[in-house]
Design a binder for these strands. Structure first.
Lengths: 206, 206
DNA sequence: TAAAAAACCGTACCGGGTTCAGAAACGTAC
DNA sequence: GTACGTTTCTGAACCCGGTACGGTTTTTTA
């Protein structure tokens, strides 16, 4: 395999495009920057850019995937799908997202939060995962009719909301540590709601 | 006001565009029909089409709005937001959607179900309502932190799923009556899940 | 019937995304 | 080092959804 000069160059180009794009979007706003500009600034042709990233959105969102279906499928024996998910998000809140480049992540979040189009894109991604999660749940607990689908939708919705609030805080300048702590609390709230239902809250209405 | 010839013509043109669009989309698929073709077939200029419908999606989706926030805001005194929503969807399942043109509705559903782009559009609409619902819930039950947002997300998610399954059945040829009956059952399932949580299901795992 | 208002039109344009034919860069074999 | 197949890159033209603009027709109002 010889280390592969070709491979290295590809990865390098991909990174360069991604970084240049993120910088431009951050400076002037996602909508105000055209893909032509990104390509030119990165020193590649538009066509090349689109071979690396299938769409403009992906320039920002490709790095923000989160595979909930895999969590369910890969859970330990004896653990319910629900508990596996809860545990996963607990861990995520505790130790941060694990991304190496924190600075870049915050920039990315800022860019996303500033663009309705990108926020919509994140939703779409989450919705796609909802479908996969539904499939995984249906396998894990057969014979419950529509319940897996509805549960998948609810889990996805809750997680999306948590993610959104987390992103919003970061883009507002809340330090990562603090945001992580708040997220931790809210993960518990969200999963309690999922597990025990709204009735557990309606009762304590002030 | 003189009955308004202008107004009548406008409405007529709008209807014509919408019907022509739906017919073409149904015949050849949403993605395979360009707005130019729709405009030409309807006998108007592209610009005119876009004054009536702000986007291609709206040609199909403008007729499929459902204002959950209004349901919460307009609920009877003493009724919880949650019960108001449950009651609303119960009623919807019982008496059909109330649309006059059932044939047209089914065509519309078929077109939507056949197009990923339109399905995504429906999701976007629902997500927008989630936001409004969150606001309404936050007003109706203050002092619960993030709970209203998460509840709104969960309700929206559940409703979206129900809607999706309902659409899918109709587009598969299930008669409206039958689909309505099934929807009725599933509304109960979904809202029970929301009210009492997943724990009520985990217990009865086969 | 004249003039204000509103709807409509053709055309040109923009930006995201694709197609295509060929040029450049790479890997490999001699 | 040279020759050759393969992969990657490129420019230019194109498609489609959507907008801007300036001018024309229709409706309303006076």
């Amino acid at each position: 395999m010889m280390a592969g000069l070709r491979e290295r160059k590809k990865e390098q180009t991909r990174r360069r495009i991604s970084e240049v794009a993120l910088r431009l979007f951050d400076e002037r706003g996602y909508d105000a920057v055209t893909v032509n500009e990104v390509a030119e600034a990165a020193g590649v042709a538009k066509v090349t850019l689109f071979t690396y990233f299938p769409s403009k959105e992906c320039l920002v969102l490709d790095a923000v995937k989160d595979d909930t279906a895999a969590i369910v499928a890969g859970r330990e024996a004896g653990q319910s799908p629900f508990d596996a998910l809860r545990e996963h998000y607990r861990g995520m809140a505790r130790q941060g997202t694990g991304e190496v480049d924190v600075e870049g992540m915050i920039t990315r979040v800022r860019v996303i939060s500033a663009s309705p189009a990108l926020l919509a894109g994140v939703h779409q991604t989450n919705m796609g995962q909802r479908y996969e999660l539904a499939t995984a749940l249906a396998e894990a607990m057969p014979g419950h009719g529509l319940a897996p689908q509805i549960m998948a939708a609810q889990v996805t919705a809750a997680v999306t909301t948590l993610q959104e609030v987390f992103f919003h805080r970061l883009s507002m300048g809340v330090p990562l540590e603090e945001a992580g702590r708040l997220l931790g609390e809210e993960v518990e709230l969200a999963f309690d709601l999922l597990e025990h239902g709204f009735s557990s809250i309606k009762g304590e209405k002030s």
